[in-house]
Amino acid sequence: MALHTLLGANGTIANALLPVLQSAGHQVRLVSRNPQPVEGVESIAADVLHHDQVLRAVQGSDVVYLLVGIQYNAAIWERDWPRIMRSVIDACKASGSRLIFFDNAYMYGKSDGEITETTPYRPVSRKGKVRAGVARMLEAEMRAGAIDAIIARAVDFYGPGVSDKSAAGVLVFANMKKGRKAQWFINADVPRSYNYTPDAARALYLLSQSEEALGQIWHLPAVSPALTGRQFISLAAKEMGAKDGVFVLPKWLLKVFGWFNPFMREMFEMHYQDEFPFRFNSSRFEKHFHFTPTRYEDGVKATAQWFLQQP
């Protein structure tokens, strides 16, 4: 029975991945600074900034998933992400563990067409430059044959259990649950790709079981064509029993919000993803693994049902 270790336990993707691994009969180890106990699952407290703690946490692991999320602040990312990646790479090399890095798409920057695994890194934000740097660090190790690793890349996500970690969760489903009009950033009439969290979790597991996937970057499944914000909101309104309408938050207003809200200030540099089309192509993964992403109609329905069940 293989041991799968989740660095960044209790986060959105870790919570979706855990039942996938359990149903496949694998042993699971949850690692975070303050792990929440899960019955029948090993939990270890560790800080990924400290190599000795990471090494102890991954010892004996067949597969390690780097799912860590840190404070959404560019200065903290610049300081901590290179240390985290270096520490995890070295620990996995020492333990002989396969590494799967759950990455985002910030390093691509603004793209005029669909974003694929071969799209050049042209970050237009501080956080995008950080993600490009840590991705290149791992890519260099993979090219050198020093580590068995995979980069699994995703964009923003939605799904059951996703609330404050998703723009769709906060702006659409949570607002509708409160009887408010849905909101959207900057432009609700351009396509905006999303990953459905159950699909992302299943995809991560498929990658973990594939020898052919090693040493490569894979885009996790996202439905194509992407919906516009207005189309996404219409589907959500139908399932939430809410009014089909949207309040678009203009760019200037988000700038003002940033004067008073640190998170919105940090988000501002990423708003090219909402101002212009942001189409994420996962066809390579879909063809290789014979995987069909969950239709928006079905994913939105399941997400709405989860929100409606919350107190």
Rank of each mutant, 00 (worst) to 15 (best):
G161A: 05
L17V: 03
M264P: 09
P311Y: 13
R279M: 08
W259R: 15
I217F: 05
T228N: 06
Q22N: 07
L204K: 02
P35M: 04
K243W: 03
S23I: 00
S210T: 12
V41N: 06
W218Q: 10
R79Y: 14
L253G: 08
F247G: 00
K129R: 14
S208P: 14
L227D: 05
A75M: 10
S87N: 15
S125Q: 04
H26D: 14
Q310I: 03
G133L: 11
M142K: 11
F185V: 11
A46N: 08
Y108K: 02
V20N: 09
F173N: 01
A140G: 07
I100L: 15
D298W: 12
M137G: 04
R180Q: 12
S208Q: 10
D80G: 01
L235V: 08
G60H: 11
F257T: 05
D244C: 04
F257Y: 15
F268N: 15
W306L: 06
E117Y: 01
R131H: 10
R202M: 00
R284H: 12
V170P: 00
P262G: 05
W252V: 11
E39G: 05
Q305E: 13
C92A: 05
G215K: 01
L99Y: 05
F101R: 04
S95Y: 03
N281R: 14
G179K: 05
W81T: 06
L49P: 06
P19Q: 04
A222F: 12
E39H: 05
A213P: 07
R284K: 15
P198Y: 09
P293F: 14
L6S: 07
N15W: 06
E297H: 09
L206V: 00
K251R: 15
V54D: 06
T5P: 04
R265C: 08
D90K: 15
N10E: 06
K287C: 00
A45M: 01
Y196C: 02
K129P: 13
R136C: 10
C92E: 02
D80F: 01
S163C: 04
V58I: 13
M142G: 11
D244S: 09
V223C: 10
T5M: 01
Y272W: 11
F268Q: 10
Y296F: 15
S87V: 06
F285H: 07
F285D: 02
S224G: 11
S61G: 03
W77N: 02
K178W: 04
F280N: 02
G245M: 10
S125G: 08
F289K: 07
H271K: 07
